[in-house]
Each structure stands twice: as structure tokens, then as C-alpha cells.
Computed example of a mutant assay.
Amino acid sequence: MPISIAGKVQSLGLTLPQPSSPAANYVSTTRVGPLLFVAGQIAPAGAQGRLGDQVAVEDGVRAAQAAALNVIAHVAKAAGDDLAKVRQVAKLTVFVASAPDFTQQPLVANGASDLMVAVFGEAGRHARSAVGAAALPRGAAVEVEAIIELAE
């Protein structure tokens, strides 16, 4: 019997949310061959503000984890909730709303990266960019986008 992505997430003490709907004129995911491109996902309301100003690094890490959990919800939908269908988390891009002198974006991005490895194991190890931004949609502290290789 296949292991479900939702079940793996639950075993970590987390709950897989419903995949979010796009906020504008785009789609949440696009599949090109085996690659699934997941549009930027933000954490639920409450994880807002800029790191280095009103948001502490620890809160940013939690926001990155929550945004990554939304990415995983889209992956689960595309993979039929079958953990074995996720061949590789190829790339994460983590955008961090940052004060001008904030330079700890990689520490914040670890919240997303660590969750991918916890859920997908070796297939969760990925290339990554951690990018500081002046502002993110809806005032979010963190936004995560992903490229995932799925079994055909």
C-alpha cells in the first residue's frame, strides 16, 4: 500500500492544508513532462512583516515552513497523495521580506528546506535560492516556490 504524503506530514505532527487557489490570473501549478512547477505560496495570515524589522528569525523560519507546507499540498494533489511519486524536489526559491540590513535569509529558508527533507527524505534534498525582497504579496514574511520531479 502506498505511503501518502498527507500521512507522512501527519506523522511529523503537522496537518496538510487544502491547496490554495491562485490570487490572480495564473495557475497554482503547471506540469511540463515530469516537472511540476508550484507557484509561490505564502503562509496563512499572521506570518506578515519584514524580517529584521517586526519579524524575528524564528518566526520567519516558521513562516517558511508554513509556506512550504502549502507547496507540499499542491505536490500531494498532483501526485495523487502518493509519496513514492515524488522523485525529487529539484529547486526551492524562498523569498524573504527583509529590512535593508537583514542578511539571514538562508536561516529563514531552512524552515522550508528542512520540511522538504523531513517529508520526502533524500528526494527532498534540493538546490535553493534564498532571496531578500522589500515586500511580498499580502504583506507576507516569506514566499516559497518549487520545482518538483514527479514520476510519470
Rank of each mutant, 00 (worst) to 15 (best):
A140Q: 05
R31T: 13
N110T: 12
G132T: 12
D82C: 08
K77S: 14
A134M: 13
A6W: 03
F120K: 10
A123D: 06
L14F: 10
L16M: 09
R125D: 10
V96K: 01
G33D: 14
G7D: 08
H74I: 02
A79Q: 04
A6Y: 04
S11T: 09
A6F: 05
A84W: 04
G60S: 07
P137Q: 11
L69K: 00
H74F: 07
L51T: 00
G60D: 01
L51V: 09
A67N: 00
D53T: 13
F120N: 05
Q18H: 11
A135L: 04
S28A: 15
F102N: 09
P22Y: 08
D53Q: 14
D53M: 12
V117N: 05
V61C: 03
L107W: 08
Q18K: 15
A23S: 13
L12G: 01
A47P: 00
L150E: 03
Q18V: 14
A68G: 00
E122W: 10
D114K: 15
A99R: 07
E58I: 06
H74T: 07
K91Q: 15
G60Y: 03
D81T: 07
T30F: 00
A109I: 02
Q54I: 04
S21K: 15
R125A: 14
R62I: 09
L16P: 08
Y26H: 03
A141R: 01
K85T: 07
L35H: 13
E149N: 14
F37M: 14
V86D: 00
A112W: 04
A90G: 06
P100C: 11
V131W: 10
S21Y: 02
V55W: 00
A68R: 02
R62F: 09
V89L: 04
H126I: 09
R62E: 13
S20G: 12
K85R: 14
D101L: 11
S98Y: 05
P34A: 15
M1A: 15
A123F: 01
G49C: 07
Q105M: 08
A79S: 07
A6C: 09
M1E: 15
V96N: 02
V131N: 15
E58G: 08
T93W: 10
S113W: 09
A73F: 03
S11F: 02
A140S: 12
Q104P: 01
A133D: 07
G121C: 11
D101K: 06
A90I: 11
S28R: 11
V71E: 08
A112V: 00
V55I: 07
A45E: 13
G46I: 04
A47I: 07
G121D: 13
F37R: 11
L14M: 13
N110F: 09
L36R: 06
L36Q: 01
P22Q: 10
V89A: 03
R128A: 15
L136E: 02
A79R: 01
Q54P: 01
A118L: 08
G139H: 00
A43I: 10
V94E: 02
